[in-house]
């Protein structure tokens, strides 16, 4: 009988002692309220605030059970990783296109059922989004935040462009691959979220893998190049590829790129092909948006099967 009490007593005091160890996020009261998101309707801002701000802004409302060790460590890690992926506290410093991109990013996080984290909604049921709230976000974007093509007719046809320009490496050491325009188009996409039109090129290894149905995982040596152009309205009402925006690569090499999910990620922007990214680890941004596709080897595209129809 006595022993039982002793054990329970010991455990209780351990739990109490553990409460002294807390993540610094709690002690250094860093949580400052974020202003209502400017430029979006109040209902839209409200939904994001209720469901997402705890982990995706500096405005975290710690509930009493969130403060208990060890739960608080889990919560603190959610906030750290969550803010790295998406941080609404930066809203005021962003230009409209970046804000719009953030909203599309957020809605896609919800639609892929990744967000809000289910471990969180279990304890914070108010954060769960119902269909009405999802439709509210979706309709707001569809009705207000759809990029329209520019209406200038393009007359450049590729003539007189600078030849053999020196292209700098991406901050993670990946060198530019100039030959992707000879590869095959494994898909095209129209992006109404940011007003671009894209071709996704696959190198011969990628095309072969598609044909053999061996795309999960994609074999080493696979390379995708995705080019984006601004949409441009023609006189006949059709929309064409206008100004070149960027080209991005994913290069598969399980060993070499073990730290970045088996892919080398790189992006070059604009006519001058300036490498994108400020630090070596800029690619965590790529991975975080591609993460919902982790069961598909981090690849979004559903490729075309390109067969040699004269064979057989």
């Amino acid at each position: 009988m006595k022993l039982k009490f002793k054990i329970i007593g010991c455990m209780l005091s351990l739990v109490l002692l553990a409460q002294l160890i807390r993540p610094e996020e709690i002690s250094s009261v860093k949580t400052k309220p974020v202003k209502r998101l400017a430029g979006v309707p109040e209902e839209v801002a409200k939904v994001l605030e209720t469901s997402c701000f705890d982990c995706h802004s500096s405005q975290t409302r710690w509930r009493w059970f969130d403060r208990l060790t060890p739960v608080n460590f889990l919560v603190a890690s959610h906030i750290r990783d969550g803010r790295k992926a998406l941080d609404f506290s930066q809203w005021d410093s962003l230009a409209t296109p970046q804000r719009n991109a953030m909203l599309y990013f957020a809605l896609n996080g919800i639609l892929s059922k990744e967000m809000p984290l289910s471990s969180y909604t279990a304890l914070h049921p108010a954060a769960k989004l119902d269909q009405k709230e999802i439709d509210l976000l979706r309709n707001y974007l569809l009705n207000n935040v759809v990029s329209k093509p520019a209406s200038v007719e393009s007359n450049s046809n590729g003539a007189d462009k600078p030849f053999m320009m020196e292209v700098k490496k991406s901050p993670n050491g990946i060198a530019y691959l100039p030959n992707y325009r000879n590869w095959k188009a494994i898909s095209t996409t129209e992006r109404f979220d940011n007003g671009t039109i894209r071709i996704i090129f696959g190198n011969p290894i990628a095309v072969e893998a598609i044909h053999e149905g061996k795309t999960n995982p994609w074999p080493d040596g696979t390379i995708f190049a995705k080019t984006a152009w601004k949409q441009q309205q023609g006189k006949d009402g059709s929309v064409y590829a206008g100004q070149f925006v960027q080209v991005e690569f994913m290069i598969k090499d399980v060993k070499r790129y073990a730290g970045t999910k088996g892919w080398g990620w790189a992006r070059w922007k604009g006519e001058n092909l300036l490498p994108y990214g400020k630090t070596v680890k800029f690619d965590s941004e790529c991975i975080s948006c591609h993460r919902p596709e982790r069961d598909n080897d981090y690849v979004f595209t559903r490729p075309l099967d390109i067969r040699d129809l004269n064979k057989k």
Binding site: N182, A185, R198, G237, S238, Y240, A241, L304, L309
Partner: peptide, 21 residues
């Protein structure tokens, strides 16, 4: 996936332009 009447598979050629209607 079939070329009953196509002389060749266009998807095997090089993409040069894209458009939307």
């Amino acid at each position: 996936t079939s070329t009953s009447r196509l002389p060749e598979n266009p998807l095997e050629m090089t993409p040069m332009a894209v458009s939307l209607q």
